[in-house]
Amino acid sequence: MCTARRRSPWLFHMNSGSCNGCDIEIVAALSPRYDAEQLGVLLQGSPRHADILCVTGPVTRKAVGAVKTVYDQVPGPKAVIAIGSCPATTNVFIDSRTLEGPLDKHVPVDVYVPGCPPRPDAIIQGVAKAAEILAKRGNNPQNAEPVVTFVGEVQP
């Protein structure tokens, strides 16, 4: 079961007000050059089918409710990846009054993929890390606490 969880991460991509940069890089990660399907990654159309929620963008006021709803719709065990600097810190849009970010105010975030935008290889690495977390987490409610990791951090 752990192996299956690690080897089959299905994503649901959600744009919470991003500038498109990260979203296009997610799509590029599926393209022939990077081909995330090698890791079993599939982009799913419905959040109910997904394991990992990929959020881009600084979470605008209009998007907050939708982020929470979609997070609740993803069946457990689940993980959340914040792709790009926007969901992590709201980036250059900091102190805009129409933003409700950063993302971790609203849903627990497991993996941060920093960059503006991150490169597709970093995104794939983030997905791989999230899949590891997912495999460890399982259906055990005690493991539901977010495991905060960063792509690109130096392993001790």
Partner: peptide
């Protein structure tokens, strides 16, 4: 700004002084 009030002066909201 769906769900908000129609016709708000946003500029005042985002005033450079930072005063809400």
């Amino acid at each position: 700004r769906a769900g908000d009030k129609l016709g708000v002066n946003l500029r005042e909201m985002a005033a450079p002084t930072g005063v809400p």
